[in-house]
Amino acid sequence: MRGRRILGLAALATAATLALAGCTTDQLALDYGSGGNKNYVAGDGSVLEIEQDQRTQKVEFEGVTDAGLDVSSEDYLGEVLVVNFWASYCAPCRVEAPELEKLSQKWSEKGAVFLGVNTYDEPGTSLAFARTYGVTYPSVIDAKTAAVQLAFAGTVAPSALPTTIVLDREGRVAARILGQLPAASILDAIIKTLVAEGEK
């Protein structure tokens, strides 16, 4: 992603898409659930799973977390990586945060790790969200460059907030949940399948 002159326009386009995909108030969260026409793209909780032999190139990204630590996709190779795209203003993001944290704790040291991608907030706001909702896994601050969002655009784009994308141990997109988790058990089952792939 470094040095690409196309980053500016593409980042703005992606950021605009994700901004529209979010929600600014709890009323919009209700509209999100009902499918109301409120000028944003609402995820419907649909689940896309990609068979192992149909997965394409690995996703490569790098960024800085809300705690100021450098991270990259290379750090997670060999483990299943659950990437959750979110923002603090998004009510469905707030609803699913505790469920994601529970799954993060369940799979810690068992072959899967979690990483948030904050598409809107400054580090302080992101950290405050984590404290409020008890989220312990890190989040990349991606609001200014949209670099992480762009890294996924060539595979299965995070076209709504929230979106959860799961990478297999090779860093390839294996599943996407568009919108709020319909049930934690669905993501849990996806993770279990992908962790098992690496144990065969």
Rank of each mutant, 00 (worst) to 15 (best):
F152R: 03
A11M: 08
E199M: 09
G154P: 07
K192W: 12
G45D: 01
A29G: 15
T136Y: 12
V117E: 10
V71M: 03
Q52M: 15
R94G: 01
A128P: 09
L81I: 03
L7Y: 05
E197W: 00
G8S: 15
K200I: 08
I141A: 00
D66C: 11
V140I: 09
L81R: 05
L178G: 05
G116I: 10
L7V: 10
A153D: 11
A143D: 06
G63N: 14
I190K: 05
T25E: 11
P138S: 10
D188L: 09
N39M: 00
A151E: 13
E109H: 07
S159L: 07
E79W: 04
L194A: 10
V148S: 01
K102C: 04
T56N: 14
G78D: 02
V41C: 11
D66Y: 01
S126V: 02
T145V: 13
C90H: 01
G36W: 07
I190E: 02
K58E: 15
P98I: 11
V148M: 02
E197C: 05
T56I: 13
K58S: 15
L48K: 05
R94E: 06
G171V: 03
V166A: 09
S108F: 11
L181T: 11
L48A: 15
P162N: 15
V117K: 02
I190R: 06
F129V: 12
G45N: 09
I191H: 15
G78A: 04
T25K: 06
A146V: 01
A112V: 07
A13I: 08
T163W: 08
T56D: 13
F114Y: 12
V195L: 14
A174F: 06
A67V: 08
D70A: 09
N84T: 13
A15S: 13
T132V: 02
Q27G: 14
K192P: 00
I6D: 15
A13F: 00
I186P: 04
Q180A: 05
S46P: 00
L9V: 08
Y40M: 10
L127E: 00
V47P: 07
E199I: 07
P158T: 03
V82W: 06
S139R: 12
V95R: 15
N84Y: 10
N118W: 04
V47Q: 03
V71D: 09
V47A: 05
A196S: 12
G179S: 04
N37R: 13
G3S: 09
